[in-house]
Each structure stands twice: as C-alpha cells, then as structure tokens.
Design a protein around this nucleic acid. Structure first.
Lengths: 144, 144
DNA sequence: TCTAGGACCTCAAGTAACTTGAGGTTCAAG
DNA sequence: CTTGAACCTCAAGTTACTTGAGGTCCTAGA
C-alpha cells in the first residue's frame, strides 16, 4: 500500500476545498487537532487529518453549524455508540432546513409578484408611484 | 386630524416590531436620522420616523441587506427618480433568493434521503455502520 | 414631596464563521 | 545563493445585531 503522505497545509487545503486560513481557524477552535510541525515550524498533516477535514467540510456543505459538526465529529470518533444520535442530529437539522425553505419560498413569491407588478404598472415612472416601494411601506401582515 | 404624536423609543419599537437596541443601532449606522431629544436627553420620534422605520423593517423582513436597505431608503427619499432602480434591486435580490432556494432544496433532498436510509438500515446499530456518517465522509460531488 | 421601579441613556464587548491584513520566516527551484 | 512562493503569528474586520455594565430620568403612588 501507499506510504503515508505528509501534507502541507496548502496541499491539504487544495484537496479538501478549504482555505488555508480556515484550516488554521479550525485548529484554533479545536475542531482539528494540532498537527505535527516540521523543522521550520510548518504544519505537517497525516492521512487521518485529511479524512477528518473532509468530513468536517462535508458537514459544513450540508450547513451544519460548527457546534453540530463538533458533535458529529465526536460521534465518528466513538464508533461503538448508537447511530440514533447521528440520525437525531440530521433530523433536527433537516427541520431547520425545511423551516428556512418555507420562509424563502414565501419570500420568493412576494418578491416575484412585486417585480412583475412593477414591470407591468410602474416601471419607467417615478419612484413615488412604484408598487414595490409602496408594498415595502406597509407593515408586515397588512393585507393591502 | 390627529395631533402629531411624539414617540418614545419604546413605543416606536413596539409599533414597528423592532427592538429598542436595534433602533439605536440603526441610528448609529446612519440608517435612521438622529431624532430630537427631550429635556432629559431621551429620544423623541416623529411620525416620519415611524414611517421610515416601518419601511426599513419591511425591507429587512424581505431579507434585503442593510446596504440594500440603505439604497432603497435613498430611493424613497427621492420620489422623482425612475422606479426602475427599485425594480433592479428587487430583481437582483430575487435572484439571490432563488439561488439560495435551489441550494436548500438540494440540501433538503440529501438530508431527508440520509435520514430515511439510516432509519431503514442502520438505526440502533453502531455509529461505525451508519449510512449518514458514511455519506458525510465522502468528498462533495462523489457519486458514491 | 418623596420614592420605587420601569424606561431610558452610553459605551464596550460578544455572536457565527470566517476573511483580511501586517509583518516576518522558511522552503525549494534555478 | 538568491528569489519568490508558501508558510508563520497575531490582530482586526465582516454582518446585523444582542447582551451587559453602570448610571440617569420619568412617572405614579403614598
């Protein structure tokens, strides 16, 4: 099998899709363990760091917060535990994503209506008569 | 007609749905003009402040950034301008909202698949075999 | 008139998750 | 041996507020 690679921070960044400062930041906040250092003090990463950072990156892609990622990492580090914990985290997060989706869908609807109405009724005219700004001037939940 | 109300910051907050510190913050960053002050130095707001803050609040409800709100406020203050500027801002923002929607929809799909698969295949078993954590361990875009 | 407590005041720091910048060292190729 | 890219640390900036500390003001009741 291949010899264990020793990665520089730049290479690790490239291969995981993180930036170099982000990797140092994750180390600062204890999400990544401090790696070994070479003669000149430069960080030297092992294959296991690559795996861990890939995992972290992926969780972040899925929009888990850093604190949630911390919990997920703790789970992966403790492979005997029941995976219901992972499912619970995922489902909690899924609920949050769905709530945000509902919000954004409502937003999209309102904004596209405004844009359409403005294009049809007031575009080219003065701001004073703009249906968009008119809509923005009314309190939330106002049915007018 | 009704006499012009003079509002305390607390009352203004209540009527617009902003918090008191938020109102002071908006003043700090120049989004709200500094109001008159009463004898003891307390802020005293006019009807026009109420209208402006309502407008700001509404824009924020629609997820415009503070900088965008600043531009929108500038538009409302200059009613002779062409309202195409407002439509452009709204459409730019709409595009951003739609992009975010696409992202979240993809996210929702992935997460719900993971949760379903875990419930069916690994829930109750050890983390080691969890399909969720397995999925999180693979780099983005990996078709496995 | 006094007083209690609620609302107000200012200024500083904390939040999330990084990014950016300054100023300096180390490494690797030519 | 030199040069330029990559690395180092530490501090501050970003967004849009929130929270806290410590102190003042206003108003209603006794």
């Amino acid at each position: 099998m291949a010899a264990a690679r020793a990665l520089t921070i730049g290479t690790l960044a490239e291969q995981t899709g993180c930036t170099v400062p982000t990797i140092r930041y994750y180390e600062d906040i204890g999400l990544l363990p401090p790696p070994r250092r070479g003669a000149g003090g430069q960080r030297s990463y092992a294959e296991s760091d690559f795996a861990r950072l890939t995992f972290i990156r992926r969780c972040r892609d899925f929009d888990f917060s850093i604190e949630q990622v911390r919990e997920l990492v703790a789970l992966v580090e403790d492979p005997e535990r029941d995976c219901v914990a992972a499912k619970d985290l995922a489902e909690t997060h899924l609920s949050a994503v769905r709530a945000k989706l509902r919000e954004l869908r409502a937003l999209e609807k309102s904004l596209s209506q405004f844009a359409t109405a403005c294009a049809a009724q007031c575009a080219g005219g003065p701001i004073r008569d703009c249906v968009i700004l008119d809509a923005f001037s009314k309190p939330a939940g106002c049915g007018c």
